[in-house]
Design a protein around this nucleic acid. Sequence first.
DNA 1: TATTGTTATACTCTATAACTATA
DNA 2: TATAGTTATAGAGTATAACAATA
Lengths: 167, 167
Amino acid sequence: MARPPAHSVDETAVGAPPARRIDRGLLPTLLGYELRRTQSAVFADFAATFAAAGETLTPGEFGLLVLVERNDGMSQMALARALGIDRSTLVPILDRLQARDLLVRRRSPTDARTHALGLTAEGEQAVARFTRLVKAHEKRIASGLSAAETRLLIELLEKVRTAARSL
Amino acid sequence: MARPPAHSVDETAVGAPPARRIDRGLLPTLLGYELRRTQSAVFADFAATFAAAGETLTPGEFGLLVLVERNDGMSQMALARALGIDRSTLVPILDRLQARDLLVRRRSPTDARTHALGLTAEGEQAVARFTRLVKAHEKRIASGLSAAETRLLIELLEKVRTAARSL
DNA sequence: TATTGTTATACTCTATAACTATA
DNA sequence: TATAGTTATAGAGTATAACAATA
């Protein structure tokens, strides 16, 4: 069976003109779909918040920095596990943060195979600044919700995460 | 100021042994963080559901196929806008789906610049199969929630998306 | 002139496999 | 043997800039 090349155009005529309004069918009733769309909008708000303050950071980098700050001396393996990513994925991310002088790989006193991760003084200061921006961002994305609704939302998300975890 | 090379190791000794339990600090109180973690777990459940059925599909591809099915003849620009991605990003995604014979780029009868996107017969059948798998996946991730809680969660997510949109 | 789809390019996130040093 | 970090590599998702065809 010969297959047409990529982005070939089917020459069969078609009658329907382009749809005016987009019909999303069942998608808006799907938790996974709404989760993905919301997460995408929240990511954009995060980026815009940091860009407006002249800072560059992704949500993932923020989470990583907080983890290292709260768990000084942790290994790359422990960090990768906490982030749910492969240890090889972590390497270039740490390289970048280290190049920005926010983080250091120190010698572990107990196991020469591991690195003891830690923030630099500059990293500590940066995390303090970043935390203020994150709080402003959080306030904005939760602005349509009461405090009780925000807590409820987080609870419901945790329940979904637990159910999804039990594969 | 000379900067050490990537993944250099700081020779300053450090006393703290690796932390036993991970301290996540303020992260679990952040909507953005919980959203990201939940979305990641849901994505993994989606992938596992499809893999277990011998099918290969991402949530993004499912959303795209449903959009094309419900809006037959739509252009690539319209689809890119509906998905919130750049038109250039869409090209290789459509190439892949077209190579799998699920989707076709047809000639538009009204505007030779555009393609009228549509599903093949095989694509229609596949979407029917995929929809059954998605429903099973949705049932699993929502298994910790009542029907009312699921609806509420979707409502709260929409409110967050709206607030994040208004940048 | 403006729009659509494509290409070239680049960057990030993700993984697997194999290598080195160490335990 | 097993573990930690690194490298090489590859695939997917994302974007911008420039181009050809068409409006």
